[in-house]
């Protein structure tokens, strides 16, 4: 039977709405900045700007991997645990081997990610469950390795990563920028990036187009683990120690950054550029509220409300049939 042709909507109308949705995360960030600038003199200063960027580094690096996972339509609750575990492993091995042990964080992250991807893709366990298990188990492992006490690391190179700078740019911020550029390249210029978006947009279509979906899932989770590993290295360098509670709750900030950045949890659209904006929004929010003297209890309430509000405005409900 003849199908119903799409009704012609006014193009300008739809165009401006789409434009608003695309740039909405950015607008929120600007509005938040202007708001705080009006409230506090300290907010607009080079020093504070640097502080915000430093505070964003760990979150935004970890959120690059988180974006790929969510873009694919999966979820990763293990980010905090993997970041924490990497930082603790780096600290532990650095006590023995020195700076050559730094890449161990990447290896730990990638291995855990690959294992998660394998269990998810091949054994067909939902990503929510696999990563929830890793979240719990990961924190347990951290407590084992640290025996419940921070592992202090005194190393010049690590200190340089954590608080040094290159030509005026803090090293960790530089690392975050490099991580973003790599993630952006993967998303837009590689076959893997296309495959991830395709799986998020329609897994069956992707599979029926000749994409090896299982392989892409495993690689994507391994990649996410790699980013978490890097975030772990940055974390241990900032704190100068591997803390048994490092990274706790980071997975929720990652999800918030991704979603505020315009990638829906159903996947298939959005991307890493938005996530950077989302991560900055979260950092600016904490920073500004701190400067304004808002109690940390109230801050949590505000953060939660901003997350929900961002999604209410940015999603296009007409395109989404069922919300779970």
């Amino acid at each position: 039977m003849a199908s119903t042709p799409t009704t012609q909507q006014s193009k300008t109308d739809r165009g401006s709405l789409d434009w608003l949705r695309t740039y909405f995360p950015f607008l929120v960030l600007i509005v938040v900045c202007i708001g705080f600038a009006a409230f506090s003199d300290q907010f607009v200063s080079a020093r504070n700007f640097e502080t915000v960027l430093r505070q964003t580094a760990v979150l935004s690096i970890a959120a690059m991997g988180g974006t790929f996972v969510i873009l694919m339509g999966s979820i990763d609750l293990s980010v905090g645990a993997v970041v924490g575990l990497s930082s603790v492993v780096v600290a532990y091995f650095m006590q023995i081997f020195g700076i050559v042990a730094i890449p161990s964080g990447l290896i730990v992250g990638a291995l855990i990610g690959a294992a998660v991807g394998f269990i998810y893709a091949k054994l067909k366990v939902p990503s929510f469950i696999v990563t929830l298990g890793v979240l719990v188990a990961g924190h347990g492992m951290m407590l084992h390795i640290t025996e419940g006490r921070p592992i202090m690391v005194r190393d010049e190179f690590l200190r340089w990563i954590g608080s040094g700078s290159v030509a005026g740019v803090p090293t960790i911020v530089l690392l975050a920028i490099i991580a973003f550029l790599i993630a952006y390249f993967i998303q837009n210029h590689t076959v893997l990036g296309r495959s991830i978006v395709a799986i998020g947009g329609g897994e069956v279509v992707a599979q029926r187009s000749g994409i090896r979906v299982d392989r892409v899932k495993i690689v994507t989770f391994a990649l996410a683990g790699l980013f978490s590993g890097l975030a772990g290295i940055v974390l241990v360098s900032r704190m100068g120690a591997g803390s048994p509670t490092a990274g706790t709750g980071l997975e929720l900030d990652v999800i918030a950054a991704v979603v505020i950045g315009g990638t829906p949890l159903t996947g298939g659209m959005g991307g890493v550029a938005g996530t950077v904006i989302g991560a900055l929004t979260i950092a600016v929010l904490s920073n500004g509220l701190n400067l304004a003297g808002v109690s940390s209890y109230t801050q949590l309430i505000i953060k939660g409300a901003v997350l929900i509000a961002a999604v209410i405005v940015s999603i296009d409900r007409k395109k989404i049939g069922i919300i779970k």
């Binding site: 076959v191 978006v197 395709a198 279509v205 187009s209 298939g268």
Partner: peptide, 18 residues
Amino acid sequence: EGLIDALDIRTNIGLANL
């Protein structure tokens, strides 16, 4: 099984050709 609605024509055609 055929097309991803949210993606553009170009990307959809590209999917089988990766």
